[in-house]
């Protein structure tokens, strides 16, 4: 992937954990494609990837779309998220497609889809988010633990 808005942003720990990778940016379509690796640590009692971990991937898919489509000026702070789980997900590669349906000054409406390598739709989500200027982001990952 050539240079993108993400080059300016330090890679957050959750992107590392989910093995977030940028695959494609489609600005006219207000869309990004990213990929993740569903790890053994994400497996639930059912033997498949826990639904909440898929929600974490969808959150990072939709957030990526909002960030890129705002040309790196804003990042989303999720207000709410509605996720539907359509098929069980296995350990391995998962693709996320995020779309910035509408970006306002303060609120973004986002949607996301997750598919496995065979193209099976695993989960889909919609989300509304408060759009925050990236200037307020910490330059390094200061841990808000105190």
């Amino acid at each position: 992937m050539p240079g993108s808005e993400f080059d300016k942003l330090p890679r957050p720990p959750c992107a590392e954990m989910l093995d977030w990778k940028l695959v494609e940016i489609d600005k006219p379509g207000k869309r990004v494609v990213v990929s993740f690796t569903a790890r053994q640590e994400f497996v639930s009692s059912s033997g498949f990837i826990q639904g909440g971990m898929l929600a974490a991937m969808l959150d990072d898919t939709m957030g990526s779309a909002a960030f890129v489509i705002s040309d790196g000026r804003q990042f989303p702070s999720s207000i709410d998220m509605n996720v539907s789980f359509l098929a069980p997900a296995k350990v391995g590669k998962i693709f996320g497609e995020g779309t910035a349906v509408q970006l306002g000054k303060t609120i973004g409406y986002l949607q996301g889809e997750l598919r496995d390598e065979a193209g099976t739709l695993l989960a889909r989500a919609t989300s509304s988010a408060r759009m925050v200027t990236t200037e307020v982001l910490p330059t390094s990952h200061k841990l808000h633990s105190d």
Binding site: L9, C14, G52, D60, F75, S77, H144
Partner: peptide, 20 residues
């Protein structure tokens, strides 16, 4: 490992906790 670019816990990981 759960932190987002803002330095807080990523929302999806809170969803994972709620699922559990």
């Amino acid at each position: 490992e759960f932190l987002n670019p803002a330095g807080y816990v990523q929302g999806g990981l809170l969803a994972a906790m709620l699922d559990d």
